[in-house]
Design a protein around this nucleic acid. Structure first.
Length: 387
DNA sequence: TCTGGGGTCCTAGGACCC
DNA sequence: TCTGGGGTCCTAGGACCC
């Protein structure tokens, strides 16, 4: 029987801010976009527990948060700092097993089935992990222990903060039955509504629906849900996930039809994406342009290319071509540039290029990377960015 | 209350081929 | 003269997650 742990940091971004500035302790901390006195764009990325008492939660529009709690502490996210602490946490987890699968900066699955002989029962390992994280980072984590990933994830969430929930092998259905279906991984508002139409509000309702009915209404995810309703999930804990896409997008402070601004933004988004691509030693076979109008209607276009790309110039050229196919009758709210069909250098499916000159741009890009890595991004700038 | 930025996975339609 | 069936690939959109 497998013993899976899900470790999930409590109010992670807000807790880090509190850690770095103890004067914030106990106050309603809201990490997210600049509220700008209630007129800010964007959403709450995370908030402390005192902030939640005001009805604030992540993904809430920051303007709404400002209305609910004008006296709160509003801070911009510092992702690099969160990343830094995340690395410390993940290193702690890897002391207990190699089978650590990070899900995001602040949570991970562990398969400790093979560690119990040496380290004791999963419960003891989990206690130890919580203690270690607290003593070595000063931050609190919640842990779920269960026979599989899906149950462990639900369990870790159940008694936050400082949660510790064990789902015994013989108590799975008892644990699941009363939970609302929206707790299930993959059941959002739309799916919950469709399942509600079938009479399902909690997991026991869902478990009563025949598999064929679920498959008819939801396709393969219906089949998946049928298993989840029974606590069945045999997915392995997989360390070393390879990314499938890399993208960068930005929402303008004000919706705009200024073509120069739009094209300049496209340029810098392309550079950012390409740089991250090279940093991870990828080339892309697919470039995606994303455009959201003021009305919030969102469109994408993508181009797949036989000759893999990795320079800002190449990404930009393709993105610009797609951008020109969009009408600009309406103002634009967001632009995004993405890359996909990623391949590592060396394992490239493309034939070696017949035109070695085509690689000059890539050599230049790498040189620029090196200089920016050593002296900072401001050491080298595009002429077009200097206006 | 107007709704970020980074992702993953699934679906559906059309092009294209045999 | 109006047309099958199966397969694959590409593209656009959408649901969902943190």
């Amino acid at each position: 029987m497998r013993r899976i742990l899900h470790v999930d940091m409590d109010a992670f971004y807000a807790s880090v801010e509190e850690l770095d500035d103890p004067t914030l302790r106990g106050r309603p901390i809201i990490v997210g976009a600049d509220p700008k006195g209630g007129r800010g764009r964007g959403v709450v990325a995370a908030c402390s527990y005192p902030a939640r008492k005001f009805g604030i939660h992540s993904a809430l529009p920051i303007s709404r948060a400002w209305q609910l709690c004008p006296g709160g502490v509003y801070v911009r996210p510092r992702f690099e700092r969160y990343q830094e602490i995340s690395r410390t946490i993940m290193a702690i987890l890897r002391r207990y097993t190699d089978l650590v699968e990070p899900l995001s900066v602040d949570e991970a699955f562990l398969d400790v089935s093979g560690s119990t002989a040496l380290l004791g029962p999963a419960e003891q390992i989990a206690r130890d992990i919580k203690d270690r994280i607290l003593s070595e980072t000063g931050l609190m984590a919640s842990v779920g222990i269960a026979p599989n990933k899906f149950l462990a994830k639900i369990a870790s969430d159940l008694e936050k903060p400082d949660g510790f929930v064990v789902v015994p092998h013989d108590g799975v259905q008892h644990f699941l039955n009363p939970l609302p279906i929206s707790r299930l991984w993959g059941v959002g508002p739309k799916t919950a509504a469709r399942l509600g139409a079938l009479g399902a509000r909690n997991v026991s309702d869902l478990a009563a629906i025949p598999k064929a009915t679920l498959v008819d209404t939801l396709g393969v995810s219906g089949e998946h849900l049928w298993h989840l309703a029974r606590g069945q999930d045999d997915r392995a804990v997989t360390p070393n996930w390879e990314p499938k896409s890399i993208s960068s997008e930005t929402t303008f402070e004000e919706d705009t039809r200024d073509v120069k601004l739009l094209v300049d933004t496209l340029r810098s988004l392309s550079d950012q994406v390409a740089r991250r691509l090279r940093k991870q030693k990828f080339r892309a076979g697919l470039v995606t342009l994303k455009l959201r109008y003021a009305s919030f209607t969102t469109h994408t276009k993508q181009t797949s290319v036989a000759q893999r790309v990795e320079t800002g110039d190449d990404v930009f050229r393709l993105a610009l071509r797609m951008f020109k196919q969009f009408p600009l009758a309406e103002r634009v709210r967001l632009l995004g540039v993405g890359t996909g069909m990623l391949t590592r250098e060396g394992e490239n499916p493309e034939q070696l290029t017949l035109f070695s000159g085509a690689r000059t741009g890539e050599r230049l890009a790498r040189t620029v990377d090196e200089i920016q890595d050593r002296f900072g991004d401001d050491a080298l700038r595009r002429g077009s960015e200097l206006t």
